[in-house]
Nucleic acid binder design. Sequence first.
DNA 1: GCGTAACCGAGACGGTACGTCGGGTCTTCCG
DNA 2: CGGAAGACCCGACGTACCGTCTCGGTTACGC
Lengths: 202, 202, 202, 202
Amino acid sequence: MTQDTEDTVRRSIGARRNPASQEAILDAAEAVLRELGIAGFSIEAVARRAKAGKPTIYRWWPHRTGLMLDVYKRFKTARAFPDTGSLRGDLIGFLDNQLVGFWKNSLCGTVYRAVIAEAQTDAGAAEALQAYQAERKAVARQMVERARARGEVPEDADATLIIDLVVSYAWHQLLLGHLEEASTKTEAVVDTVLRGVPGYRA
Amino acid sequence: MTQDTEDTVRRSIGARRNPASQEAILDAAEAVLRELGIAGFSIEAVARRAKAGKPTIYRWWPHRTGLMLDVYKRFKTARAFPDTGSLRGDLIGFLDNQLVGFWKNSLCGTVYRAVIAEAQTDAGAAEALQAYQAERKAVARQMVERARARGEVPEDADATLIIDLVVSYAWHQLLLGHLEEASTKTEAVVDTVLRGVPGYRA
Amino acid sequence: MTQDTEDTVRRSIGARRNPASQEAILDAAEAVLRELGIAGFSIEAVARRAKAGKPTIYRWWPHRTGLMLDVYKRFKTARAFPDTGSLRGDLIGFLDNQLVGFWKNSLCGTVYRAVIAEAQTDAGAAEALQAYQAERKAVARQMVERARARGEVPEDADATLIIDLVVSYAWHQLLLGHLEEASTKTEAVVDTVLRGVPGYRA
Amino acid sequence: MTQDTEDTVRRSIGARRNPASQEAILDAAEAVLRELGIAGFSIEAVARRAKAGKPTIYRWWPHRTGLMLDVYKRFKTARAFPDTGSLRGDLIGFLDNQLVGFWKNSLCGTVYRAVIAEAQTDAGAAEALQAYQAERKAVARQMVERARARGEVPEDADATLIIDLVVSYAWHQLLLGHLEEASTKTEAVVDTVLRGVPGYRA
DNA sequence: GCGTAACCGAGACGGTACGTCGGGTCTTCCG
DNA sequence: CGGAAGACCCGACGTACCGTCTCGGTTACGC
């Protein structure tokens, strides 16, 4: 985090995007979310904090959801997606690292809740979230593909349903503020879902 | 819908709540949601529409989420909760009538999405939603209780987990705008979850 | 001051004005003015403080100016209007006791400023103030009559002008919040005005 | 009066005050005062009339008194302050042009009464009025300085008292709605005050 | 090597909505 | 009928952000 490392005024660097400004804006957005929460997150607040002009923000993030998602993604990149050798292990790891466990880092959870909330109001946000979800779930379904290759699940297993059930559960607990409880039940959830897949054998 | 059936000005009826005003406000809230959507839903707009003073609304609904929830509940009341004789039938009916199918009535879905979104921003809203959820889920768990009594599921079946998985799936699809798809998969979801319950027999 | 001497709820005493309520309202009005100043003086605040219903206040004081004037008059009654034997002495006493000195009691000044302010906005208040002024000045002009009888001023001395100049000066300093300064200049004011009266001899 | 000469929407002209908006707001304020009187004067009404946002008004006039004073000043500027060659002439001209006679233009009197009233309630308003008064009186005292230079009054004549007495009288009559009567007495007032100055000779 | 296009900060602009306060009216219930 | 209570509609308050705009200034690029 390079917050306020630069006291000097940022200026234009010509007819192209100034990376320093973008960094400063993302830093500020993160800081605002951390300190004021979702309710206090406004373009004005971010601009104030980043010492940036509002139009600069609007130029690059027409919807504030996009800005939130970018903040979210900066965290996400680090997280691994390990192949544990079994679908059960993969799914538990997925829940623990990518979903529930990840969101328990308060900022990540806060941001993602905000993104989901925004998507209920704003069509652009909904689209952005849907695109992000589609991409993430496609990646997640690869876990099922691997299991299929290993013979853990039959060829016709519904990968979409499996992933959806797991992700849905995580969302639900996130949105109700029950992450603590959820993190104690990851195994039970995964086991229930897997037992429900016809032809599954550990 | 008794919108504007009365042209005459509503007055105070003494030192107690005026039911006509409450009705008018709920009617107006519903109409605003229907016509302007979530984004256009504001206390100001409702007050204008209901020809009511803003303080009158704030007096009875300190948080706008409460108002939305009340609009939501007016619809909900009508919906039945039939005992079909089997847990599978009950859960499918639950999904079709109380959740997915119910929300496909665009207004209901819109309102509930808004309530959930609000709860991510506002603490009071979160509380209201949590209370509502707790109550609804307690009712839903009675379906499992009945199944237990019938011997469909063992004594130690995790009713909370069963209901949570079903509700979570519905929420997820609602929030992503995938209700259409969801309504084609209700049986698959219920079957998967029930097969996942150890000792379940249809 | 009989503030809150009664804890018991005041009730109707039949189809006539309840003096206890009137007392309580005047006490409350005074207390509100003392504690919150003019800006905080509202019928609501007085009603809250007096544990009275708003309609009860409106019934007896249709304009809030009337209420303020009644508070003002409760103080005024006590003040004497002595005959010092000379016009100069009378006028100085008038300024010191009835005007500047009286208003320096912060509550009295506050109330009177409020009354004057109100009269600029509200026609009813203006009328009430004008009536009160006419009466007070008529009394004050008697000082000049007495001086005329003593031969201090000629028969054709303009009593109205003399009183007006003195009262005007006091008002002006009151309204500008310069009462302190004014109280050091009462003698200079009176002397200047009296010297200005043709044919005056001490 | 340049009311609504421009149908086109006023926009920002960059990070600086837009004179067109300021003009429009002052015009609107004047119009509202003229048409609705003091009681109908609200920031909301002015904003509506000026087709300006409320924050734009609050940005430049934190207290509504300041706005009234600016309306008042727009009239005042035109009025002359002539040197008639004698203190008597100067003071009579002062009363007739700057005070009583000026206020008889109903709008001017209305506005100034409102300003004075406001100053009794609001601390900021009081400050603004005091500042304005101090400045105007300083200018007025120059009439006495000139008379001193001409030898009309002795060196130690109390300029402050002379001006205060004249201004006070005008205020008093303004606030009681007696301007008509006052305008017939300007000479008597000035003569009385001047005769009261020790060592004055015409 | 010079004009110009796009960027940057700053902040004013017209708006909408917020949540609160008080005004004055009304009705019910109690004594 | 008087009085307490408090709900009602209404309008204004002062504030926060919205998204847009124009400004003055700063490069980097293309002609």
